[in-house]
């Protein structure tokens, strides 16, 4: 447990250093740079690229979460169950469309920049969250739901006080998958001039500069790993609080 915490701290520090003080790593990337070429990407600060990359992902994932969870709530109500297949089809389409195709199609409509990237990330993020929200909301413990109805909670009170809190860990798993996919997919956004860490990678590919490719890739990878890990920790904490299964109960007794 201690070792894991130590490893995590080391990764966070490495990431911060890579983003804020990239010149510290000149020695490491130099062997991969072409002769007379730049070793460290300097056309834009890596910090501002990272922040813009992360805010694109955060914005798209938040929108995807709101829409997917709302849809899932609607289709798991008795009145909305008829729309379950339709909404599945729509979100599945979001997933089967290649991100590059979405970008290409969105550019004529939205112009170059962050717009088309946001649309692609949003569409991409919908399905995992929607699927998990449906699973979470339709596999609630029947005795708890029966009791909630029997003691007089209204539909809205059942949803807000019982169903969503109980389904939240499962929904969070969907959000985690979606965020990690978005972190990777956002790099492609730089092909249509969104400012993301993809810029570094693409610049490296265009100029045959492996040092740039490695820098961009490493930073995106570290972000993905650390955010994934943080969300897993949050899920574990929440499931333990809910006492899902005996292992949770034992852990909280210890």
């Amino acid at each position: 447990m201690k070792l894991a915490a130590l490893f995590r701290t080391a990764l966070v520090l490495l990431l911060l250093a890579l983003v804020i003080k990239p010149t510290w790593f000149t020695w490491a990337f130099a062997p991969f740079a072409p002769d007379n070429g730049a070793v460290i990407y300097e056309r834009a600060s890596l910090l501002s690229l990272s922040l813009s990359h992360l805010s694109l992902v955060a914005l798209a994932s938040t929108a995807a979460t709101l829409v997917a969870v709302t849809l899932a709530i609607l289709v798991t109500r008795p009145a909305g169950s008829a729309f379950l297949p339709l909404s599945r089809t729509i979100t599945n389409m979001g997933q089967t469309f290649p991100p590059v195709a979405v970008l290409a199609l969105a550019v004529p409509a939205l112009g170059f920049g962050a717009g088309p990237t946001l649309v692609a990330l949003f569409l991409y993020g919908l399905l995992p969250i929607f699927e998990n929200a449906i699973t979470g909301l339709s596999t609630l413990p029947p005795a708890t739901m029966e009791a909630a109805r029997g003691i007089g909670l209204s539909h809205r009170q059942r949803l807000l006080r019982v169903e969503l809190p109980l389904a939240f860990p499962v929904i969070l798993t969907g959000i985690r998958l979606s965020v990690v996919i978005a972190l990777g997919t956002a790099t492609i956004g730089s092909t249509v001039a969104a400012s993301t860490l993809g810029e570094v990678i693409i610049a490296g590919l265009l100029t045959n500069n492996t040092a740039f490719v490695l820098q961009g890739g490493l930073i995106v990878g570290l972000f993905a790993v650390l955010i994934y890990d943080a969300l897993v920790q949050l899920e574990v904490y929440l499931s333990r609080r809910l006492g899902a299964g005996s292992s949770g109960a034992l852990a909280s007794k210890a």
């Binding site: 005795a143 708890t144 009791a147 003691i151 007089g152 109980l166």
Partner: peptide
């Protein structure tokens, strides 16, 4: 719902709210 709040209801598997 008003009626149910005036009538206690207890079931076999207790149905407590785990959270």
């Amino acid at each position: 719902n008003t009626l149910r709040r005036r009538i206690g209801y207890a079931i076999q598997s207790h149905g407590l709210f785990p959270h």
